[in-house]
Simulated scan of single mutants.
Amino acid sequence: MEQLTCILCDRPFTPNNKQSRRLQKHPHRMFLCPQCDERITFKTMARRGKKASGHPLSFPQRKFE
């Protein structure tokens, strides 16, 4: 497994299995280290007014009238 560099903090990290598979299929993608990813997820959930334990991509459902 190769080392990746975080695009925010420039620290090298070893990707997890999911990131490794994505990297093989899409080598041009950029990744965040786990610390930056967790920090951004926590701040995003706080801004949206949700618990930080939820999935980062779960958006509130809109009601169409």
Rank of each mutant, 00 (worst) to 15 (best):
P34T: 02
R29Y: 15
A46E: 15
G49K: 00
L57I: 02
M30T: 13
F42P: 00
T41A: 08
F42I: 13
S53R: 06
G54R: 15
H26W: 12
P56S: 04
R39V: 04
L32I: 05
P27E: 07
P34C: 03
T41I: 08
M45Y: 03
Q35S: 11
P34F: 01
S53F: 04
M30H: 14
H26Y: 13
Q35N: 11
F42C: 04
L57P: 00
M30N: 11
I40F: 07
D37Q: 11
T44K: 12
K43D: 10
A46C: 14
H28Q: 14
A46L: 13
R29W: 14
G49Q: 02
R29T: 12
C33N: 02
P56N: 06
E38D: 10
C33F: 04
S53I: 04
R39A: 07
D37L: 10
K51S: 13
M30E: 12
S53L: 05
K51C: 05
T44Y: 11
G54L: 15
A46W: 11
S53H: 08
T44N: 11
P56C: 02
R48H: 08
F42D: 11
A52S: 14
T41R: 10
R48P: 01
S53P: 00
Q35I: 12
E38A: 15
R39G: 04
K51F: 06
H28P: 00
P56R: 03
K50G: 02
C33S: 03
L57H: 10
H28A: 12
H55I: 05
A52M: 07
H28V: 08
G54C: 15
R47M: 11
M45I: 02
K51L: 08
C33W: 00
H26P: 00
F42W: 09
T41G: 03
S53V: 07
G54N: 15
A52W: 08
E38F: 09
M45G: 04
I40G: 02
I40Q: 06
L32C: 04
A46K: 14
C33Y: 01
K51Y: 06
I40V: 10
C33Q: 03
G49Y: 00
K50S: 06
K43L: 14
P34L: 01
G54Q: 15
K51G: 07
D37R: 15
L32N: 00
R47S: 12
H28L: 09
P56Y: 04
L57T: 06
K51Q: 09
D37M: 09
I40M: 07
R48T: 02
R39T: 08
L57K: 12
R48M: 09
D37Y: 11
T41D: 04
R29L: 15
F42L: 06
T44H: 11
E38Y: 08
A46P: 03
F42H: 13
S53W: 05
L57C: 07
S53D: 09
Q35D: 11
R47Q: 12
E38K: 14
F42K: 14
K51A: 10
T44P: 00
L57N: 12
G49M: 02
I40E: 03
M30Y: 10
S53Y: 05
A46R: 15
M45P: 00
H26T: 10
F42E: 10
S53C: 05
P27Q: 06
E38Q: 14
H28Y: 10
R39S: 07
